[in-house]
Design a protein around this nucleic acid. Structure first.
Lengths: 197, 197
DNA sequence: TGGATTCATGAGTGATTACTCACTTCCCAT
DNA sequence: ATGGGAAGTGAGTAATCACTCATGAATCCA
């Protein structure tokens, strides 16, 4: 799981520091210290500091997130959806630091943004929108722009990350996270209005 | 509306640059150039660069956002809610750059985060949660943790900002933004499931 | 008009930065 | 053992940073 070669040690240290202080505020000296190598060693693996950032999102690092909305249940009840999203949420939480860094820095570095949009986001939204469109056709969901639904659902899950980033310790245990996700799915499926049946 | 004193010119320029490049990546030289003053002038008004950032969120700047969830309709139909949120969305959009900078940099600067949590976020969430709780008591909304509902609703609106930040030009005109907000409210109230009546 | 107070300036400063390179250490096939 | 290439090193470097300060310009009131 944890590769122990120098390159990965550097990437691992850089991710932690970028997440904590931001890309620009992190120095290569700090990265070297945390990675347990000399500053010069960093530049044997990455020509520039920015290449470290870009390498974080490269090939396999984000593959798991790319597929985070794959294989949603094509038939059956929303209970399936609940279980599956709960599982995917764990993936998101496991990569919390990476997501935070990538989303934050993509605002400022176009290469990152372009790569993210073309290789990750578009796939996630296309997959999710296709699922939603199919359920609309099947008469399960009401008809609307499936991409708007997709972005709203992703936005709801992103809000969980945001919440957690702002309420770090206090009260965001596993249970509260589960409650939150449950309500996300409840609201997404049923809304907040009391049923009148 | 646009104050023309030097201090405000500096704040205005700093906000634009912080939003575009991030706080750490912005130099005081750039701020001075954009503000049309000398670099030394900046430090007549702000002891340190960080004080510029902190001044951005100080007294009146965020007051409008602080009250963004005030005075929600205590009675009547969701049409009211729709109109009001549509109006509030304009406030959010008007302050897009400021929100982006504050949310991004609050992750890294605890003074900012603390100020934001204590003076802005808590008020917004308390107000919104109180509204939701009252509607739950009135039997309009189903009973649940109103704070979770509040965070999810705010998260949904934040996702609109995020979407726009990533799809900057293409297809985010006034109309599309209206559609998006409409669906946020639809989903929040009714969910995505087709009504079976 | 003149003296004082405020506002503005930008060259200068020490600290810090990303990055280089001459060098050492390690590893392993012979 | 040994030679040689790969991996690792950290003092050094030019550039850049946030911030200072001695000076100048503008404004004000008598």
């Amino acid at each position: 799981m944890e590769s122990r070669n120098t390159s990965d040690l550097i990437l691992h240290a850089a991710l932690a520091l970028f997440s904590e202080k931001g890309f620009s505020a992190t120095t290569t000296r700090e990265i070297a210290q945390k990675a347990g190598c000399a500053e010069g060693t960093i530049f044997r693996y990455f020509p520039t500091k920015k290449d470290i950032l870009i390498s974080l999102v490269r090939p396999h690092a984000l593959e798991e997130l790319r597929r985070v909305m794959d294989n949603l249940p094509r038939q059956g009840e929303e209970e399936n959806l609940r279980l599956i999203l709960e599982n995917r949420l764990k993936t998101i939480m496991k990569n919390k630091s990476l997501i935070k860094v990538v989303l934050t820095e993509a605002q400022y570095h176009d290469e990152l943004k372009d790569y993210l949009m073309e290789n990750i986001a578009s796939h996630v939204f296309d997959t999710l929108a296709a699922y939603l469109a199919e359920r609309m056709e099947a008469g399960v969901f009401r008809k609307a722009d499936p991409y708007i639904f997709a972005r709203i659902l992703v936005g709801m899950m992103a809000s969980l990350l945001l919440s957690e980033s702002f309420y770090p310790m206090e009260g965001f245990d596993e249970k509260k996270r589960g409650d939150y996700l449950n309500e996300i799915i409840n609201i997404f499926l049923h809304g907040v209005l009391k049923k009148e049946d």
